[in-house]
Design a protein around this nucleic acid. Sequence first.
DNA 1: AGCCAGGCATCAG
DNA 2: CTGATGCATGGC
Length: 313
Amino acid sequence: MGVDLSITQGEIRGPFNLHHTMQSGQTSEPYWRRQNETYREVDFFNGQPALLDVYPSGDPDNASLQIHVTGEHLDEETLESIRSYLVNLFRLCDDLPLFYKKFRNEKISQAFKEFCGLRLMKASNPFESLICSVCSQHSSVEQWNKTIRCIQTSFGQLIDLPDGQTFHAFPSPETLAKASTAKLEGCQAGYRAQYILSVSKKIVNGDLNLDELRNASYETAKNELMELPGIGPKVADCFLLYGLGQTRAAPVDIWIHRIVPKVYFGGAKMSKEEVGRFLRSRYGEWAGLAQLYLYHYGRMRSSKLFPPEKKLV
DNA sequence: AGCCAGGCATCAG
DNA sequence: CTGATGCATGGC
């Protein structure tokens, strides 16, 4: 009923730090449940639910990912789909060493050292990522995570695991389109409840097709997303980056809006739009990753867990 | 009590 | 175009 797998160097291009990646507040999905070094999540593979416990091993520069799978019918094909699921989720094929090398002479390289192995994530369920991105607006990481977990248990299909544990899948657009405002607000969604409803409805009636956005250019996709209620530039970029893997997207939130002018322009006054344009022109296809390092560095630096001794500037 | 949190919509100049 | 304000909610 349980099988052990590992993803090792050779399948991972360069360093990988699971903790940094899992704790960087990306809106691909909510935080996995954590117990010490191990992170747990449930999903379907070949139509069967399986519970994944993942934990790191090896030194940071030569890291591998250990996986314990609990479930039934764990044939070779299922295990292979679990492996590729994780490789895609943590974007383990991204050439992190090349990214570090390209920008090693910039101030941002301080963040490379501090958070070496931090990787972008890409959602396995774009709809879930879109709802996460919507809920993250004007809220803390901890808060939107609670809301998403509540939406999951309140509306998501029950999953029975062979060992008797139960989990909930993330609900479909059809389910959320029919959700009651009261129940959504019960999950502390606040005024975002309306946004969740209308976005879900637009997906159900065909006005919004997330798979088609995948093939559109960055600009086209972003403009189309911003037509939707409750989706502005930042939420659109979060979804494009963490939901669809558009690595040119660089969400400009309050942290990035503070940090970029300070680090790159001597504290000059800039609009959010200017900051976004700057990151895209400077980092191109790496803009999303550069944004993640700046964001995580800034957020950790001002946290009590990470004293602000080392300065980026 | 007041301000902030991975913003957005709206309205006034 | 820029700037101000309300919006739900919890944490500090």
